[in-house]
Simulated assay, not measured.
Amino acid sequence: MTRRPPLRAIVRRVHLWLGLSIGALFAFAGLTGSILVFYPEIDAALNPALRAVPYDARARSWQAIVDTLHREHPTRTGAWRIEVTGDGGAVPVRYYQPRETAGHDFAPFLAWVDPVRLTTIRIGFWGDTVVTWIYDLHYRLLLEKPGGVVMGIAGIVMLGMIASGIWAWWPRPGSWWRALRFKRDAAPLRRLYDWHKLIGLGGAILVLVVTATGVMLDLPDQTRFVIACASPLYRTPPRAVVARGAPLPVDRLVAIAEHVFPGAALAWIETPASPIGAIRINLAQVGEPSRRFPRTNVWLDPYTGAVLATRDGLAETRGDVVLNWLHPLHGGEALGLTGRILAFIAGLVPIALFVTGLLRWQLRRERRTPQRTIGTRGEPG
C-alpha cells in the first residue's frame, strides 16, 4: 500500500507549481505596478514640454481653461474633467466619451492645457502614452474588461500561493530561530531557499495588501456586490437642471463649493455633460485616503449656483470607506511618499521571489539529473 505524502509536502508541491506558473504573472504584475506607483512623475519626465509651462497662480482661471477646451475642441460637447494637481505646470484634462474610442471600455481623450497661454499643448487617447499603456497592461493585460476578470482571478490564485508559501515554511514549536536564520556558509541550494523565504516573509504584509486590493479593483462589480451585502453604498441620484441663459463662471461655482467644505482642497472640476446637467466639484478633505481621487463632492446648478447635492468623504458608510481605501492602499498614496515607496518595494518582491524560486528549482533539477558516463575514449558511454 502506497503511503500518502504528508500535508506539508503536498502544500510545498502546490506552492512550487503555482510559483513556476502563476508566479511569472505575479512578477510581471509587480514590475508594472512598481512603475505605476510614480506614473505621473514618469509621464512628466517623458514630456519636458509639460514641465516647461510657466506657473502663475494669478493667471489661472478655471473658466478660461474651460473656454480654451470649448474653443479648441468644439465637437466635444460633453463633460470635461479638469484635474487640479496643485504643483503648477500644464493642467491635465479628460474627456470620457470621445467618438473615436466609443467601442472601448475605457479610453478617454486626454489633453493638457497651458493655463497661462491658454492653449492645448498635448493631446492623445488613453493607451497611446507610455504610462497609460503600461497601466492598461498592468490592470487588464490590454484586454479591457475580460482582462480585468483574468487578472482578478489570477490575483486570487496569487493569494493562495502566498498562503501556501507561509504554510509550507511555518516552523514547528521551538525551531523559530533556525527557520528565520540565513545560513551564509550553506550550499547554494540552501542559500537560495533562505533568500526566498526571507524575502517572502519580509514583504508578506505589503504583498498581501497590494494583491488583495488589486483583486478588488480588478473585480469591481463583484466587490461592490459583496460589500453591499454587508453595508449600503453611495448611489448618485440623477441631478437635472433647467437651462436658463448663460451659466455662471466656473471660478464662482468653485468658490461656492469650497464654501460648503471649508478647508478642503480642489481636486477635480467636471463640467456639465449637457445643457441640463449639473457641474460637479470634487474636493479633498484632510483625512481622506486619496488626495488625487477623493470622495467629497458638490453638485451645483451651473446657471444659479444652487447646491443640488453633496457627498462628504469623511462621513461615508463602512462599505464606502472600504471602497475609498482600495486605490490609495494599492498605489501607496494613502500613506504619502512613504506609502508610495512601500508600494514600489511591494511590486519588486514578487520578482525576487520568482527569480530565487526558479533558480532553486533549476538547481535541484540539475542535481537530480543523472550524469552520463564518459567512455575510455572520451565519448559518451
Rank of each mutant, 00 (worst) to 15 (best):
residue 143 L to K: 08
residue 309 A to Y: 12
residue 21 S to Q: 09
residue 143 L to Y: 10
residue 135 Y to W: 12
residue 221 D to H: 12
residue 277 G to F: 01
residue 30 G to T: 10
residue 246 A to K: 07
residue 355 V to W: 01
residue 154 A to L: 12
residue 49 A to Y: 01
residue 82 I to V: 15
residue 81 R to T: 15
residue 258 E to Y: 03
residue 166 I to R: 07
residue 179 A to L: 02
residue 159 L to P: 03
residue 38 F to L: 13
residue 146 P to V: 03
residue 223 T to R: 08
residue 197 K to D: 11
residue 276 I to N: 11
residue 92 P to A: 15
residue 378 G to P: 12
residue 28 F to G: 14
residue 169 W to L: 07
residue 213 T to V: 06
residue 217 L to D: 09
residue 268 W to I: 10
residue 6 P to G: 09
residue 21 S to M: 10
residue 26 F to T: 09
residue 343 A to T: 00
residue 359 L to W: 03
residue 374 I to C: 10
residue 63 Q to K: 06
residue 338 T to G: 10
residue 349 V to P: 00
residue 83 E to L: 15
residue 352 A to D: 01
residue 157 V to R: 04
residue 111 A to W: 03
residue 166 I to L: 15
residue 346 A to G: 08
residue 262 P to T: 08
residue 332 G to P: 00
residue 347 G to Y: 01
residue 33 G to C: 12
residue 340 R to E: 00
residue 72 E to N: 09
residue 76 R to C: 11
residue 254 V to P: 02
residue 357 G to S: 07
residue 284 A to Q: 07
residue 243 A to M: 08
residue 259 H to P: 00
residue 314 L to C: 11
residue 60 R to L: 15
residue 323 L to T: 02
residue 349 V to M: 02
residue 299 W to Y: 15
residue 335 L to A: 05
residue 378 G to T: 06
residue 369 T to I: 05
residue 65 I to M: 08
residue 342 L to V: 02
residue 200 G to F: 03
residue 16 L to F: 15
residue 90 A to N: 14
residue 164 S to I: 05
residue 180 L to Y: 10
residue 46 L to R: 13
residue 171 P to S: 03
residue 86 G to H: 05
residue 44 A to M: 14
residue 171 P to A: 05
residue 82 I to F: 13
residue 76 R to L: 15
residue 348 L to D: 01
residue 241 V to T: 09
residue 39 Y to E: 14
residue 168 A to E: 05
residue 158 M to L: 11
residue 350 P to K: 04
residue 350 P to M: 04
residue 249 P to T: 00
residue 260 V to L: 02
residue 71 R to F: 12
residue 91 V to H: 02
residue 275 P to M: 05
residue 310 T to V: 15
residue 129 T to E: 13
residue 272 P to M: 01
residue 353 L to P: 02
residue 203 G to T: 03
residue 50 L to N: 11
residue 366 E to G: 12
residue 23 G to E: 12
residue 29 A to R: 05
residue 225 F to H: 13
residue 141 L to T: 09
residue 347 G to E: 01
residue 93 V to L: 08
residue 162 I to P: 01
residue 151 M to L: 15
residue 15 H to T: 05
residue 274 S to L: 00
residue 356 T to C: 04
residue 273 A to M: 00
residue 129 T to K: 10
residue 172 R to A: 11
residue 176 W to E: 07
residue 37 V to A: 14
residue 95 Y to F: 12
residue 103 G to Q: 09
residue 169 W to R: 07
residue 72 E to G: 11
residue 202 G to K: 06
residue 216 M to S: 07
residue 274 S to E: 06
residue 226 V to P: 09
residue 58 R to A: 15
residue 222 Q to E: 14
residue 307 V to Y: 02
residue 337 L to W: 05
